[in-house]
């Protein structure tokens, strides 16, 4: 047995143990800690699967931002009584057997997957020079399957509108309030020191994404986390949702993407195509604006609906 395999087996056992524990533990708050730890382990597994771009996203989004969101919710719900009865033993057994069957069936399919596996890697590599990019994943995201990325940026907007729509009518146009903790010296210090690092890292990830692992979503997620930290510590206030500049920031990424995509019909013969030779600068432009918009959207998703009545 090689050492690398030992690492993989160790990781597998650990991740399964944490997952079981997250589901089994009684207290919700503790369960969320389990989930954050689980996300960290997943990032390690993504590294082992030679997918650093995904590992970055998992670290930033899957474990980081999702963990924050769930931690905040669990903290607020600690006094909530759950009045729905837990399912009976029979249902548990039925569900358990069903899920075990699903797992077993899927496991059989995993073992039955064709070998050698079908892959698009050669096609991606063959066309990458046309995009001027060095990172094949960014090539897929911003060139070959740009529509998915455009829609993914757009998807954040209805989700955010959905969150905002949960405000009370009188609070519409007001600001969300993330600061639900008492002011604390240590937290304030953290919120003063960490964000400069984080902002550099976020911009670096976005900029680096064209050629190295990274990109708009990873960079945006880090920026969003730093913004949320500042808001949590009470060093700044979230802007009122009615602000015009905020709305512009939110849609800027998708709008720029859409405009460049539409320009492609005229200048490159297809929607979302880039004119030859201009692919890389256009992609970088899109990524930069997208990073900003994504950071704002993610930050506001964490901040929740407006709760302050506008003055």
């Amino acid at each position: 047995m090689t050492l690398a395999l030992a690492v993989d087996i160790g990781l597998t056992l650990l991740v399964l143990a944490v997952a079981c524990w997250t589901l089994a533990v009684r207290d919700t708050f503790t369960s969320v800690i389990g989930f954050v730890a689980y996300g960290l382990l997943l990032a390690l597994i993504w590294v082992r699967l030679a997918a650093p771009d995904v590992a970055l996203t998992e670290a930033a989004m899957g474990s980081g931002l999702t963990g924050l969101l769930l931690l905040g919710a669990a903290a607020r719900l600690q006094n909530a009584k759950n009045i729905s009865a837990p399912p009976g033993l029979a249902l548990r057994w039925v569900a358990g057997v069903l899920c075990a069957l699903v797992s077993a069936g899927l496991a059989a399919m995993v073992l039955l997957l064709p070998d050698p596996a079908p892959t698009l890697a050669p096609a991606v590599v063959a066309h990458l020079p046309a995009t001027g990019l060095g990172n094949p994943v960014t090539g897929v995201l911003l060139a070959y399957r740009a529509i998915d990325t455009l829609l993914e940026a757009v998807v954040l907007l209805p989700a955010l509108l959905g969150v905002w729509s949960l405000a009370a009518d009188r609070d519409w146009g007001g600001a969300p309030r993330l600061r639900y903790h008492r002011p604390d010296g240590a937290l304030t210090l953290l919120a003063q020191v960490l964000p400069p690092f984080g902002i550099i890292v976020g911009i670096y990830l976005c900029w680096n994404g064209a050629d190295q692992p990274g990109g708009a979503f990873q960079g945006g997620a880090v920026l969003a986390a730093m913004w949320a930290l500042i808001l949590t510590a009470g060093l700044a206030e979230a802007p009122p949702v009615s602000r015009r500049w905020l709305r512009w920031l939110l849609v800027a990424g998708s709008a720029v993407f859409l405009v460049i995509g539409l320009a492609g019909i005229g200048f490159a013969d297809a929607f979302l195509a880039y004119p030859a030779g201009y692919a890389k600068p256009l992609i970088l432009t899109i990524e930069l604006v997208l990073t900003l918009s994504i950071a704002v959207a993610l930050g506001l998703l964490i901040a929740g609906p407006p709760t302050r009545t506008p003055s």
Partner: peptide, 13 residues
């Protein structure tokens, strides 16, 4: 049929 970005499936959408 419209190949988005001028990329044909399976690479494109």
């Amino acid at each position: 049929v419209y190949d988005l970005g001028g990329w044909m499936p399976p690479l494109g959408v």
